[in-house]
């Protein structure tokens, strides 16, 4: 049984301008020790999906619905606020994009770290401090004992993100949700942090949900990738086949628009024309159809189920009526 099993998750925000469907019928499983990449652009619902898992969607205006969200045999939807609080930071923890705003500037790093252990494991301050120093050493921070007395502003961006990771891992969580963990960092520091996360996963066996807009980051770290567009999953596949043969036109467009270090730099980049749709006012049928080169009349009505492609060996699902034709055409070309 999967460690985390999300079935038909929807999140909507009831605003003055109408109901915004941020997440619409998303289902996925996360296995023990795997890294799942969740890719999409701003407003695609990737962050809200994970806030919903953690019970952090503000209500009102947020409304979370799902058939179930099973984590290690328990349905998170049925837990009380207090039970969820015990779970968060303990069995499921999260690291955010901006390490400056997610740390409290008025408290030392040591105080913020030990709080986690005092709350979740009832440790004394002294025991907690010892474990915190070990936690900082674990994420490659030199002189961890002295760093405990430092305030966040005394650390560099990369160091702060290491502190966030150390904090998230203190209670040895089974699931780590990393929401754009390297987006605010420079490339050389990003490389350090990605290396660290891969290393920690191998040593602790933590399952990771890696949320990012950067396809390069996913290619290097994730076992499987789920692509989101306008609140829905549009393609799910193991990493290698997703990149070698993207099927959904959005995935294809996204991959083609990434500037690379190979290929002809003088040619125009291929881009997806138009803008992502307004979530309060989604088009009928496929949400991507207005920007899609392949779109036909039948794409503009009815549900777009996420389905396997007949005859493909890789466990891939695609929410596109033309998936079979596109896969056959591009598979044949290779």
């Amino acid at each position: 049984m999967a460690l985390l099993d999300v079935q038909n998750l929807s999140v909507r925000f009831d605003t003055q301008d109408g109901s915004v469907r941020a997440v619409d019928g998303v289902s996925f499983q996360l296995e023990e020790g795997e890294t799942l990449g969740l890719v999409g652009e701003s407003g695609s619902g990737k962050s809200v999906t994970n806030l919903a898992l953690m019970g952090l969607v503000p209500a009102p205006p947020g409304v979370v619905q799902a058939d179930h969200i099973n984590f290690a045999g328990r349905d998170l939807l049925t837990l009380t606020a207090e039970e969820l609080r015990q779970l968060r930071g303990n069995e499921i923890s999260m690291i955010f994009q901006d390490p400056m705003t997610s740390l409290n500037p008025l408290l030392t790093v040591g105080r913020q770290l030990s709080e986690v252990l005092e709350i979740h494991q009832g440790l004394s301050r002294r025991e907690a401090d010892r474990l915190c120093a070990a936690g900082l050493a674990d994420v490659g921070i030199p002189e961890p004992e002295t760093r405990l007395a430092a305030y966040p502003h005394e650390l560099s961006g990369g160091m702060r993100q290491r502190v966030m990771i150390a904090m998230a891992l203190l209670c040895k969580p089974r699931v780590l949700i990393a929401d754009e963990p390297t987006t605010a960092l420079d490339v050389t520091i990003q490389a350090q942090i990605l290396e660290l996360m891969t290393d920690l996963r191998e040593r602790h066996g933590t399952a990771i949900i890696l949320i990012t807009h950067d396809l390069g980051v996913v290619a290097g770290c994730a076992d499987r990738v789920h692509v989101m567009y306008a609140g829905r999953l549009v393609e799910t596949a193991p990493t290698a086949p997703l990149f070698s043969l993207p099927v959904h036109p959005y995935t294809r467009g996204l991959l083609a628009s990434v500037p690379t270090l190979t290929g002809d730099p003088t040619s125009a980049l291929s881009s997806i024309e138009g803008q992502p749709p307004d979530l309060a006012n989604l088009p009928a049928g496929c949400a991507f159809a207005p920007r899609c080169d392949y779109a036909e009349t039948r794409c503009r009505s009815g549900p777009m189920p996420l389905e396997a492609i007949p005859g493909e060996s890789a466990p891939r699902t695609v929410a596109c009526l033309l998936a079979t034709e596109i896969a056959a055409a591009s598979g044949g070309a290779r």
Partner: peptide, 25 residues
Amino acid sequence: LLSAIPVPDPAAEATRNRILLPGDV
């Protein structure tokens, strides 16, 4: 810097020789 850029190609990512710089600027 060049070696640190993540490349959207899992096969290339697996075989790349990444130069990891120690420390911060």
